[in-house]
């Protein structure tokens, strides 16, 4: 990738190494995300996609290398400081708090900057949540939990969203709704890094795809060249 691209990148990850407890799971991840892009991390189970997101957020056990956001080096920062720069995560297990109701879950992440979506807009994107505002987090369906997990990071003013497998285990109709939501968020100006197993879904929403294997980024495929690279991608993903 060109230096000009790197210089403009909103998020730039260089030689990122990460450890989960004793085990070394990231072995020098490099990639960039431009302002306003939707980028996916594709790869097999255990390739290091989720670990990469956790490491960017600062909540993997230990990390070294360089992660710059908006020009600021975050490698030595605590997760709460990284969050305050404008990065927000929607974790794979969704992280809905069972002891909190939908409203409380939604309002939990503190506002860190202006420019977040207001509640009206959030309920436009996720109409199901409006009817369930008083329901306990533990009483939601998988799809509702996923919507809530995305919804609550939209009102804080965070600008870079890290979404970890938002379609995992969900019914096709909900997967479509989440696809439409990601397209709408891109229009609103959010920058998104998406971890996906389902690359048909990934192809429908992303600008570029990074292929992760054994704790490294091994390839980058622009979405418009995806068809031409299908054989290569199949080989990477082992499908």
């Amino acid at each position: 990738m060109s230096d000009a691209q790197t210089a403009n990148a909103l998020l730039s990850v260089r030689d990122l190494n990460g450890w989960y407890g004793e085990s070394h799971v990231l072995h020098g991840v490099d990639f960039d995300v431009q302002e306003g892009e939707v980028v996916t991390l594709l790869g097999r189970n255990g390739a290091g996609k989720t670990s990469t997101l956790l490491a960017i957020m600062g909540i993997l056990g230990k990390r070294t290398g360089a992660v710059t956001y908006n020009g600021a080096e975050t490698i030595a920062m605590a997760p709460r400081q990284i969050a305050r720069l404008g990065i927000a995560i929607c974790p794979e297990e969704r992280g809905i708090f069972a002891a909190l109701n939908v409203d409380e879950n939604l309002m939990l992440p503190p506002r860190i900057a202006d420019g977040g979506l207001d509640l009206e807009r959030i309920f436009e994107l996720f109409p199901n949540l409006r009817e369930r505002r008083r329901s306990q987090g533990s009483k939601l369906s998988g799809g509702e939990q996923q919507m809530l997990a995305i919804a609550r990071i939209l009102r804080t003013g965070a600008h870079l969203l890290l979404l970890d497998e938002p379609t995992e285990g969900l019914a096709p109709v909900i997967v479509q709704q989440i696809g439409r939501t990601i397209a709408a968020l891109k229009k609103e100006g959010f920058t998104i890094v998406l971890v996906e197993q389902n690359f048909r879904f990934a192809a429908s929403v992303a600008d570029r795809h990074y292929v992760v294997d054994q704790g490294r980024v091994v390839d980058m495929i622009p979405n418009r060249e995806l068809d031409a690279n299908m054989d290569k991608l199949h080989a990477y993903l082992g499908v």
Partner: peptide
């Protein structure tokens, strides 16, 4: 961990 990752001290 997640509450911290939302920016809460």
């Amino acid at each position: 961990v997640l509450v911290g990752a939302f920016g809460v001290n």
